[in-house]
Design a protein around this nucleic acid. Structure first.
Length: 585
RNA sequence: GGCCCCGUAGCUCAGCUGGAUAGAGCAUUGGAUUUCUAAUCCAAGGGUCGCAGGUUCGAAUCCUGCCGGGGUCGCCA
């Protein structure tokens, strides 16, 4: 249960009663008041600006309206106090009874606590990574993979029917170069003198490995053929191998796309042609010339007429080319077809996770989606900023030539899946991220992964200790849900419970904003509240220790809280794709 | 030159889609160890939220214009 929504509904009812009493008609469909947690705890648990927002409709001063609302609120058994403050805020103190009930919710609903139905079963497509199958992925791809994967899990928990999708760019120039690069290495292996590898070819040694594999499989049968003969099969072989490599790395990250969609297939089945003729029917395609970009050197610019899509009609800055001079479709053209393909598969909500260098591409794609679906589908593009790799305080300069290129697979093998996933979400996606290979494995509170895992291990350790004293059957969540919880009354305890109770809200906000980093920050907050309590009990106030032999009732209440904590941490970690640790040794 | 993103404490960054006295970690200083794991905790100092206007009861948040940093700019994907 999202408790903010719960009280929002309650406030709404109170408003209705006040409106009735004062014979005012108010338009509640338009309500947009806030119900939030004030920064200052002195202002209560929740605070609403409803009186300020609706004052005009009531033709009253905010404060006068608030005074009418307050008595209505206090009638709830869950509200112990409501008072007005400042220019017309209503600050509400929620009863401890309410928080104790949330604790029971957690114990009974377990890891499904926080699940909601805001998606109401609607389909949504999350396209992520989509790295070109021309080489191994780097950490930047890993960031996109984690962002997309965690977002997908959040959306699933929020009642959407999610499809995780990877678009394979297996058509066009880059995969041609790939084929040539492999063939070059293949010829070298077979003793043909090839000279220096051309600069535009992919240089990486992984292609030598690939060529060796090819030779092992086929011997020298491709050697003396024409390009027309060798290119298609070798290209197919190379793409397939690269995709295996990429999938393997994704899997080791815990990322498993549901669908791999091939660009080549989309082109070959004629979807692009079909889409373009539809657009032509709508007069959205024309022959024209583009102006050269201003302010930079373009000595090679030739103003040729070309086939353009009228993306300016849908908010783009200029119209965009859809055909190359050789007559083939541009990447944009096939990407339009691909997005229509998604729409036709039933997705009118799409999220794309892209690298930051594709920022200039967003407007034309959202324009294309509105044109192709006549405004029925919406596309949200999330751009992930660069990841800077750092070791021992020094930035690792990535250069494919000098061989200081660290692939995603290598980094995951070094730091582990869980740490990598967590750190990828310690920044919002559009901020650059420093990834420090040394710090990630550091065992201290500077390292949020350890901080959180340690708190979980501590909780587990309490339960292990408890099971030496009590019967195990008493310690399972369902049984702990039955214990008397009123004995939990320390501010630190209530604070922890409040944070745990806000988990559903965090999930909802994340699902609505498409910002998975919020989960990471929530976990840090919650772990901090737990450590506070722990340390205080262990050192400053022995009466706060979770287990006190002489008071079984109190101990059971606290074990219920610890068990709840473990449940919420575990489910937040689960969403992040991270395995909670039971002990740190 | 056009477009997109960023600018918040000495450093790295949050800031709940417009709320009250702007937060956290690191660093600095001073404290807590007969423990359910000190791999933790507590306290203190530290700010013209890049600048200037605008919108309104109210702006770090929305709009406009500058300044600074990054990205990107026809037939690469």
């Amino acid at each position: 249960m999202n408790y903010f929504k719960f009280f929002e509904k309650f406030i709404l009812k109170a408003i209705k009663r006040v409106a009735q009493d004062s014979e005012v008609f108010i338009d509640l469909a338009m309500h947009s008041f806030s119900v939030e947690r004030p920064k200052d705890p002195k202002h209560g648990d929740i605070s609403t600006n409803v009186a300020m927002i609706l004052a005009k409709q009531f033709k009253m001063k905010p404060i006068d309206l608030a005074e009418l609302i307050v008595p209505e609120l206090v009638s709830s058994k869950y509200i112990v106090e409501a008072n007005l403050a400042g220019p017309g805020f209503i600050n509400i103190q929620i009863s401890t009874k309410f928080w104790k009930e949330r604790l029971r919710d957690i114990l009974l609903i377990n890891t499904k606590f926080g699940n909601s139905n805001i998606g109401s079963g609607r389909k949504i497509n999350v396209e992520y990574v989509s790295a070109n199958p021309t080489g191994p992925m780097h950490v930047g791809h890993g960031r996109g993979a984690v962002v997309g994967d965690v977002l997908s899990k959040v959306l699933e928990k929020s009642g959407f029917e999610v499809t995780k999708e990877y678009y394979i760019n297996d058509a066009g120039n880059q995969v041609n170069i790939l084929a040539h690069s492999v063939y070059f290495r293949y010829c070298e292996l077979n003793g043909k003198s090839m000279g220096v590898i051309p600069e535009e070819y992919y240089q990486g040694s992984y292609l030598i490995d690939l060529a060796e594999e090819l030779q092992k499989r086929d011997g020298n049968r491709w050697l003396d053929l024409t390009q027309e003969e060798w290119l298609p099969p070798i290209q197919g072989f190379a793409i397939k191998s690269m995709m295996q490599l990429i999938s393997k790395d994704l899997n080791s990250l815990g990322v498993f796309p549901d669908v791999f969609r091939s660009e080549k297939e989309i082109i070959q089945t004629g979807m692009v042609d079909a889409v373009m003729s539809t657009l032509a029917d709508q007069n959205l395609i024309y022959e024209g010339t583009l102006d050269p970009p201003k302010g930079r050197e373009n000595q090679d610019w030739e103003s040729n007429p070309q086939t353009l899509f009228l993306s300016t009609k849908y908010g783009d800055d200029i119209d965009r080319a859809i055909k190359k001079t050789d007559g083939s479709w541009t990447y944009f053209a096939s990407d339009m077809a691909y997005h229509l393909d998604k729409y036709q598969r039933g997705f009118n909500r799409m999220i794309n996770i892209w690298g930051f260098d594709h920022g200039g591409y967003v407007k034309r794609m959202t324009a294309a989606v509105s044109a192709l679906t006549r405004g029925d589908a919406m596309l949200d593009v999330k751009l992930c900023q660069l990841v800077n790799l750092i070791r021992d305080g020094q930035q690792i300069k990535m250069s494919k030539r000098s061989g200081t290129f660290l692939t995603l697979g290598e980094v995951i093998r070094e730091v582990g899946r869980d740490a990598f996933r967590f750190f990828m979400l310690t920044r919002k996606n559009d901020a650059p991220l420093d990834f420090d290979l040394t710090k990630v494995l550091e065992e201290s509170k500077d390292n949020p992964v350890y901080y959180i895992q340690y708190s979980h291990a501590r909780g587990k350790s309490v339960l292990r200790r408890a099971s030496e004293i009590f019967d195990d059957s008493k310690l399972v969540p369902e049984m702990l849900a039955e214990v008397e919880l009123d004995l939990l009354d320390d501010p630190l305890e209530i604070n922890l419970i409040k944070i745990m109770a806000s988990w559903p809200r965090v999930l909802e906000d994340t699902a609505n904003s498409h910002e998975p980093h919020r989960i990471a920050y929530f976990l840090i907050d919650m772990a901090s509240a737990f450590h506070n309590l722990w340390t205080k009990g262990a050192r400053q106030a022995a009466q706060l220790r979770f287990i006190s032999i002489e008071n079984e009732e109190l101990t059971m209440a606290r074990l219920a809280m610890v068990q709840s904590y473990l449940i919420v941490v575990a489910s937040a970690l689960e969403v992040m794709g991270i395995t909670p640790l039971n002990e740190m040794r």
